[in-house]
Design a protein around this nucleic acid. Structure first.
Length: 477
RNA sequence: CGGGGUGUAGCGCAGUUGGCAGCGCACCGCGUUUGGGACGCGGGGGCCGGCGGUUCAAGUCCGCCCACCCCGACCA
């Protein structure tokens, strides 16, 4: 542990981010450049993300399976856009068991190819469809610049892979899962996100269309926080995923894939975190309530600890922890748990024992303003409401921040200055050249063409030609 | 791969004209403390990134190498 304060967010955002991850013990750097160790507190958060998502996957008819880490190199080469997109960042295994392999194996950067291969074996008839499989796993992409959670050589994620009889069904699946991610982000993580379609240049290698949820981080940069791809028949044709329809005719399947990774932890950190450290959304927080006993001597300690012991039943429906360390002071514990983002703290001292109450403090409102005395009477209900209130307030705060940093520049000159202070929401003709010009001039890329469009038409912010859609331009992680 | 920077205790750093390797935090022990990052006393911990050179003597000077960080090109 470390007594120093975090570098303030406003002073150096990325330094703040890195320090927070270390101090909150979410992750640590591994001996290999660009790899990280997810520490227990970080992994517990990931487990909660997993179960929240997994429930939503199951509710929409999906099942889990596990596909292998190693993929024959030749598989990647079967889909030409796919291999073009991924070959620069592949980790390749050339040796095994002491001798050179006949065919190099790639460590999966994503599993479309090997899953496509298996689907072609499994799918024979329209009766086999749809296939709705998800896998929880890890993938490796050899990135040049890395940052904990946001971009690491190896990361953990889930990838759903589905096969359908018709384009319509595949399209519906793609949108359904985009919606699942959107609901998860908002309802579980309190992260406001904008669901939308990616531009052609930002599209997944091998997809027909890519959709994403985009979130604004505390420095106004955008973070793609989850993606859903309509793969059309690209992979079906490359891997001969075919079925016989009702008329006994061979048809290619329509496939989708969708993923959300440990990057989302980065989204949580950078959406909610403050100068005191991490702020976790109550539904995902590994510890929702921390109880800090306060006493001056052994006699008081005995009374306080007994009081806390009796409190445990009342709190059984929450994830809570009693910090009974004797070697640090209460003040230290406050700061310590604030760094770790625990949503609610209950301070219990002799005064509370006497009055049959506890002092609550909410993480999202630091200091005295967030403190409130709670009576033991109906405590469980009070805390349940408090956690809900914290969730809502975290969401509203993040949304207000985002909305106040989205601008509608009047012309291209204004767009350029807008990029320095937030996102630009502008009409765009769809031409990649305009996109490239913006990137060249401002380093901002198109983030997504939101599903929610104003309608009508106007002039492209870059070239002035007719545009039918608005797009977000922003710097991104 | 280009530009910049840093390597000294777990972390953050100081180390002068070359002369016993130090400080703060953390860690261990004892005591006093405990409602917003406690204090005192006593301890443990080092291949000074590596290799070579200059020198009676190198953390310090010279050469080469390595690693990591920041900025760019690439990206969930």
């Amino acid at each position: 542990m470390d007594n120093e304060k975090l570098t303030p967010r406003s002073e150096n955002f990325s330094e703040w981010y890195n320090q927070l991850i270390q101090r909150a013990e979410l992750a640590d750097n591994a001996p290999v450049r660009g790899c990280m160790v997810v520490r227990p507190h970080g992994w517990a958060l990931w487990e909660n993300i997993q179960s929240a998502l997994d429930k939503r996957f199951k509710d929409t008819g999906h099942v889990n399976a596990a596909f292998p880490l190693l993929i024959p190199m030749s598989f990647l080469q079967k889909e030409k856009e796919h291999v073009k997109g991924f070959s620069p960042e592949l980790a390749v295994v050339t040796h095994g068991g002491g001798s050179e392999l006949e065919e190099p194996l790639v460590v999966r950067p994503t599993s479309e190819t090997i899953i496509g291969y298996m689907y072609s074996k499994w799918i024979k008839s329209y009766r086999d469809l749809p296939v709705l499989i998800n896998q929880w796993g890890n993938v490796v992409r050899w990135e040049m610049r890395t940052r904990p959670f946001l971009r690491t050589l190896e990361f953990y994620w889930q990838e759903g892979h589905t096969a359908h009889a018709t384009e319509k069904e595949a399209d519906e699946e793609t949108m359904r899962m985009l919606e699942v991610y959107t609901r998860f982000a908002i309802d579980e993580a309190a992260v406001p996100v904008i669901p939308g379609r990616k531009s052609d240049t930002e599209r997944f290698a091998g997809a027909v269309r890519t959709y994403s949820i985009e979130a604004m981080m505390g420095d106004t940069k955008a973070l793609q926080s989850g993606t859903s791809h309509l793969l059309g028949q690209n992979f079906a044709k490359a891997f001969e995923i075919q079925y016989l329809d009702e008329n006994n005719t061979q048809q290619f399947c329509w496939t989708t894939s969708w993923g959300l990774s440990t990057r989302f932890i980065g989204a949580i950190i950078m959406t909610h975190g403050d100068d005191q450290g991490l702020v976790l959304p109550p539904k995902l927080a590994p510890i929702q309530i921390v109880i800090v006993p306060i006493y001056k001597n052994d006699e008081e300690r005995g009374k306080v600890m007994l009081f806390i012991e009796n409190l445990k039943g009342e709190l059984s429906s929450f994830r809570f922890k009693v910090d009974d360390r004797t070697e640090v002071t209460p003040g230290f514990k406050y700061n310590d748990w604030e760094m770790r983002g625990v949503p609610v703290r209950l301070e219990v001292g002799p005064r509370d024992v006497e009055k049959n109450s506890v002092m609550s403090a909410r993480r999202d409102i630091p200091g005295r303003d967030g403190k409130k005395i709670l009576s033991l009477e109906g405590l469980s209900g009070e805390i349940s409401n408090l956690l809900k209130e914290i969730h809502t307030s975290m969401y509203e705060k993040a949304k207000a921040f985002r909305d106040s940093h989205i601008f509608d520049p009047k012309d291209y000159e204004e767009l350029k200055s807008t990029i320095e202070k937030g996102w630009a929401f502008s009409w765009w003709c769809g031409d990649g050249a305009c996109e490239a010009k913006v990137k060249e001039d401002t380093k901002a890329t198109t983030r997504c063409i939101p599903l929610d469009q104003p309608g009508g038409k106007d002039n492209c912010i870059v070239c002035g030609k007719e545009a039918h859609e608005k797009v977000y331009f922003s710097k991104a992680y």
